[in-house]
Nucleic acid binder design. Sequence first.
DNA 1: TTCCAGTTCT
DNA 2: AGAACGGGAA
Length: 274
Amino acid sequence: MGPRLRSFPWRQTRDPWVILVAEVLLQQTQAQRVADRFDEILELFGTPEAVVALGQAGVVERWSGFGYNSRAVRLFRCAQTVVAVHGGVVPHRRDDLLALPGIGPYTAAAIRAFAFEEDVAVYDTNVARVIARAALGAPVAAGAGWATAQQMVPNERGWHYNQAVLDFGATICTARRPACERCPISRRCAYARAGFSGDDPARTTAGTARRQGTFRGSRREARGAIVEVLRQGPRTRQELQEATGMHAHFDAALDGLIADGLVTSSTERLALSN
DNA sequence: TTCCAGTTCT
DNA sequence: AGAACGGGAA
């Protein structure tokens, strides 16, 4: 037998809502960071009704430390939709899942594969890298990569297979320094068999991480700082600006947060939107 | 600096 | 297609 799957709390359940919450948190966020706070996450967001009851501001308040705060807004709206439209039950059909706020192609597939145990391919940054390197030895567009991934899913074993590929990409076939020396499939890896000639196929493959601008001094940093201060409670514009210490992008950041429905501006104060 | 179990808007 | 969107960790 090869190595076991990594032990993550969301792998011990098939509760579709819990899986959904975990997958939303895992979007662009290292698995270990989510795992470290999973008890707290379950207590806070364990049912769609609980999320609705928290209210949007409550959800955003408790999202501290996870980043991408719009995900908190979308999770709240998603909970509302699941309760109001689906009677509190997470749907299993792809189109119904994609219609939920914050649920895109990856998360819809992850819910189907990991909660409902359907044999659908989960295609994320890890899988895209593995497909490009090991299966094809060449860069892939998103559509073709997904199709290739789907062909590889074994009948009746999708749950375990998908979790295993994710682990393989996260621990062996990594973005930076892939551990080819201890790779169990290096003999069958297209890129390895080609002698690692040319650029890393994963580099230019769609679905793998794209580079972003510098965070320090960015508007995104200002947005994050503003939301973090407002988690403590409402503030005047003056107080908010001083507390964040953000000057350069403060106005644009605040405008953006209001436009995104994260922050509400009343006559005197700014606050997280309800 | 790069990258992280992506989604949404333009 | 490209950009915007957090913040932590290697």
